[in-house]
Design a protein around this nucleic acid. Structure first.
Length: 111
DNA sequence: CATCTGACGACCG
DNA sequence: GCGGTCGCCAGAT
């Protein structure tokens, strides 16, 4: 399985925004959904401009292991996001939705 | 080939 | 909110 489509999508996540494994898996119709997105990110090659830290779990939770979550948190905070108890504050308005269709939902939700 | 291990998430008690 | 179950699958050993 090639995870290129996942990395390509992740690269599109704007600075200061985050996307979830579930959304990514669904948007790309990956077999296995969210878990597939997780596997892809686990195998994510470094040093290629992939903003891996902008991918979080459902509800805006940070799911990485302690050894890595500290860096993720640091990177997210450096982009202006607030992380409290391994969770993105105000996640609903910080979530970036992949497809054009989902964007309408986002705009609608924002009001 | 058998087995184990995950960067998930919805659901339920 | 917390812990357990289940669906689902690529790599590593």
């Amino acid at each position: 399985m090639s995870w290129d489509s996942v990395y390509t999508l992740v690269k599109k996540i704007p600075r200061g925004r985050v996307a979830t494994y579930g959304r990514i898996g669904k948007a790309l119709k990956l077999p296995g959904g969210a878990r597939a997105a997780g596997r892809a990110m686990a195998a994510c090659p470094g040093g290629q401009g992939i903003p891996w830290h902008r991918v979080v779990g459902a509800g805006g939770r940070l799911l990485l292991r302690e050894s890595r979550v500290s860096l993720q948190r640091k990177l997210l905070e450096s982009e202006g996001l607030q992380v409290v108890e391994k969770r993105i504050e105000d996640f609903a308005s910080r979530e970036w939705l992949p497809s054009a269709m989902d964007r309408r939902v986002e705009l609608k939700r924002k009001g």
